[in-house]
Every structure is written in structure tokens, then in C-alpha cells.
Simulated scan of single mutants.
Amino acid sequence: MNKIRPALLFGIVTVVAATAAAPAAQAADKISIIVGGMEKQIYLPPVLCEKLGFFKEQGLDVDLINSRAGVEAENELLAGAVQGVVGFYDHTIDLQAKGKSITAIVQFSQAPGEVEMLSTKAAETVKAPADLKGTTLGVTGLGSSTDFLTRFIVARAGLKAGDYSLLPVGAGNTFIAAMKQDQIQAGMTTEPTVSQLVKRGEAKVMIDLRTPEKTMEALGGPYPAASFYVQSAWLDGHKDEAQKLANALVKTLHWIHDHSAVEIADQMPKDYYVGDKALYVQGLADGKAMFTADGRMPANGPETVLKVLQSFSKNVQGKSVDLAKTYSTSFVDAAK
């Protein structure tokens, strides 16, 4: 069952679980994975994997847990409350710079799937990223991947940190409300929120990162984004479970590659359509190219992500980052 759990409850569950004498085999097959927004199309692979029965096919009992933002999911992983996270690959680099060891073992996408939206009102005066000076920009959360990408885009346009403000507004309805109420003049979000705003005439696309080609143009290289990552220490002791997870998720990516946006949408929970299935399908069709077909890391992708983070992040600047330790291809290479 998919569910949202407060961080405090995670801590309580972790303590109780640690003191319970569960059989070793059962503990090995029970996997909790937190997703930085399951309703977002960029993170649909694990939900689709569950719907298609591929986790169970591998003998896994996977509990998918919803979170409002990738940074929250990251914190739950570090706290030991979950075994894995579906979030952006860039967190593995950011965390290594902070002394934490996280490894991405399946790469879902080769483009962020994000869009910098500009409110219709702000569009009257803002024509380019350089014109965002003095505005408030929406991100899902501070320290999230939308935060990272937003700061890079405006810095590339010549703006400094004090030239604009960042406001964490989440995604979906909270993002839409913040834009309608003019709390933010622009902001980064994903499908299906992008298509909803455009259809209602409340915002327009300013920078599109939904395809590898447009991402290359905006960021200067491929940007591996949505991924499945775990703590390196957990991976060292649970290679069998990691391989089973990779098998299921890679099979899902092949399934996405071989099926249409309509066929994919038919497998998703109906509430993800937000009352407009046709719009959901259109958004998925527009962004389907973001997904990898085999779960492998795109060539030169980690280098682009590191370059992006080094351009503005004090956490990363001046730090020695070993990119080879931020991801592994061995599990997707061995996936059946």
C-alpha cells in the first residue's frame, strides 16, 4: 500500500523494527523505498514496477512510501528509516561532498524532466532568465534537485544569490496555488503540473528540461536525474536484494520503452491523472524520451552534474568528489 509517513513516525518505526526479532529471510526480502513524489511522472518507474508485479516476480516485498520532495527522502535514507530512495542522482554527489556514501544502482532518466514555469503575469516583463532579478522562484524544497537546477540556471544567466529569492512550495496543488497567488513568479516543477498550468493559461514554459536534447542546450550536457539509490554500507551487505531490485526496475524501463504513453498511463493510479487523463497522457508523451531503456548511466552524465553543482554549491566547491563511487553499473549490467 502506498502511504505518506511523517519523519517522526519513520524514526519510531525504525526503533521498533530494530528491536524486533524477525526471521533473517523475511528481513532480507522486505524493502522500504521512499519516493520524492510518486504522482510525478519523472518518478513513475517504481509505481509502474509495482503495478506490473515485477517486484513480486523477484520475490520482493516492496513498500513504496510517498514523500513531498527528494531532500526529505534523502534524510529518511540517512536516518536508516528506509533501504532505498527514488530521487535525483545529484544527491549522491552532494552527499559525498558532505562525507556520506550513497550509490545509485539504477538510472531511470537521462534528463531531469523538469520545467521552469513562468507565471502569465510575470511573462509580461520577464523574457529570459536574466530578467528574473527581484523575483521569487519556487522549488519543491531547499536542498532539493529543483533547488540545484534553479540556482544553476539563474547563475548561468548572470544572476547572483542575492538577486532573487527561493521559496519551497512543494509540487502539484501547492505549487499551482503559490503561482496563482503570486507567491512565486516562476518555479520548477514536473508533469502533470506543467500541462495543468499551461492548459489553464496560468503559466508558460520558460526552460524545458524534459528531453535529452533540450537538457543539453540548457545545461551544457546530459543530466542523469531520476534514479534509485541506496546507502553504500547497505549495498555492501545486501547485494542479492540489490540485484533483485535492479532486475525488476530494469524490466520496467524496458516495458516503458516498448509501450505507448497511453498504455503506460493505463497502468497508473487514476488519481494521478488529476481529473484529466488526456492531459496526463500528453505530458507523458512529451517527456517519455527522458527515460533510459536499460537503467544505465548516460556517458558524461556524472561529469555534467558535478559541473552544475560546482558552479554554485558551497557544499561541493573545493571538495574532492570520486564520481565512480556515486553510482554502479554492475547491477543493471547483470539484470535479466
Score class of each variant (00 low, 15 high):
T150L: 13
M290R: 09
A261I: 12
M188N: 09
I33A: 08
A242G: 00
D163H: 08
P302K: 05
W255D: 01
G187C: 09
Q267W: 08
D147S: 13
Y280W: 08
V194G: 01
K180N: 13
V205S: 00
I93L: 14
A233D: 15
L149K: 02
I105L: 15
R68I: 13
K199C: 06
D131I: 05
K199M: 02
D276K: 00
T135R: 10
V85F: 00
K336Y: 06
V262A: 03
H257Q: 13
T190I: 13
H254M: 04
A20E: 11
G158V: 06
D322R: 02
K277C: 02
E213W: 09
A24D: 13
P129M: 03
G158Y: 10
Q96A: 13
F331Y: 15
T140H: 12
A177Y: 03
P222G: 05
D131V: 08
V308Q: 12
F331R: 05
D266Y: 04
D258Y: 10
G158D: 13
A265G: 05
T304K: 01
F54H: 08
A285R: 14
F88S: 15
T211A: 06
A289C: 09
S320P: 01
A289F: 14
S260T: 15
R156Y: 04
D286T: 15
R296G: 09
S328V: 07
S313L: 10
S311K: 13
G158I: 11
L132F: 07
L166A: 01
D266T: 09
A157M: 08
L132M: 10
F148H: 14
A242H: 00
E124V: 08
E124Q: 10
I93M: 11
L60C: 08
K40L: 15
K56E: 14
S227K: 02
T211C: 15
N300R: 11
T92N: 04
A299Y: 13
L142H: 09
Q267A: 09
K307T: 15
N247A: 11
A122M: 12
A122E: 09
S165N: 15
V154E: 08
D322Y: 04
H254T: 11
K214A: 05
E114Y: 14
D131W: 14
S145L: 06
E303S: 13
P269M: 06
A171P: 02
I256C: 03
T174F: 03
V305H: 02
T19W: 12
L245N: 03
S328I: 07
D182K: 15
T150K: 01
I264T: 09
A155R: 09
S232P: 08
V281A: 09
G37K: 04
A334F: 02
A289M: 07
G99L: 10
N173I: 09
G143F: 07
D63H: 12
G162L: 01
H238M: 02
S109L: 02
A248Y: 12
